[in-house]
């Protein structure tokens, strides 16, 4: 069974059609990267999937259930097993790093304080920020916020994770570490991931499958390696710059 299946999804803001009849199927345990120019609706697509935004039409099946038709309590039952990394990190600024990480654990799961502590320490170690445990979000740099956001996303060990630009603004080394972390999660927990990114290095490490959005439509879907050898002028143009950047990143 597909972990996620999107059928004929459309979403417009006023007269601006952001998603136009999108269909997409993602298998369980698969990592898929989503590319697209800034403002094409990548974030909107992810938000529709967890119903932070209500699409205008279409269906989204997660675990075989149409999330757009579920009542709130059932929807929350599914959301518990979905991780969502916001492009803006969205850390709770009135809470310390520790409280940020404990927050999703305390309310939906019944862990003992000792188990929680262990989980907090372990995810912080994964994003190499053990020292920041008692800091407030305002004291963190942009990249650190991103990594704490990532830690908060994976702490509940979700089955499906939606990453909105997990490595944007990070240095090449941290980018690689984070990308490897995403791969590890997929191997260890068999998570399904959808990763919005502009970063070809990150994409190559994480995924073999890619989707390119443009003008509200899916412009390309398929193997990541074949993506850079397409004849489509848009894709060529889009990825030449990326490839140069990727190469520079590697040197």
């Amino acid at each position: 069974m597909a972990a996620v299946e999107i059928k004929n999804l459309s979403k417009a803001f006023g007269s601006l059609k952001v998603l136009d009849d999108i269909s997409l199927k993602i298998n369980e345990g698969e990592n898929v990267v989503v590319f697209g120019r800034s403002g094409t609706g990548k974030s909107v697509l992810l938000k529709c999937m967890v119903r932070l935004l209500e699409p205008d039409s279409g269906e989204i099946f997660i675990e075989g259930q149409d999330v757009l038709k579920l009542p709130v309590n059932k929807l929350n039952g599914i959301r518990k097993y979905i991780g969502f990394l916001f492009q803006s990190s969205a850390l709770y600024d009135s809470m310390s790093v520790r409280e940020n990480l404990e927050f999703p654990l305390m309310r939906n799961f019944s862990f003992t304080p000792a188990e929680r502590e262990r989980k907090v320490k372990s995810v912080l170690e994964k994003v190499s920020l053990e020292d920041s445990i008692d800091k407030m979000p305002a004291e963190l740099s942009g990249g650190m916020k991103k990594r704490i956001g990532l830690a908060r996303t994976i702490i509940t060990e979700p089955k499906l994770i939606l990453y909105d630009e997990p490595t944007t603004g990070l240095d090449p080394i941290t980018t690689k570490e984070i990308s490897q972390l995403i791969v590890e999660l997929q191997k260890d927990l068999n998570t399904t991931s959808i990763i919005v990114t502009h970063d070809l290095i990150c994409a190559r490490i994480i995924a073999s499958h890619a989707v390119v959005l443009n003008d509200g439509k899916i412009r390309f879907e398929g193997n990541l390696e074949s993506l850079t050898t397409q004849d489509d002028p848009f894709l060529k143009d889009f990825f030449t710059n990326e490839i140069i950047e990727a190469k520079n990143g590697r040197i």
Partner: peptide
């Protein structure tokens, strides 16, 4: 506006 409320919502917290 910083999406913290959205973040709670997706963590299945009301």
């Amino acid at each position: 506006v910083t999406e913290q409320i959205d973040a709670m919502e997706v963590s299945a917290i009301n």
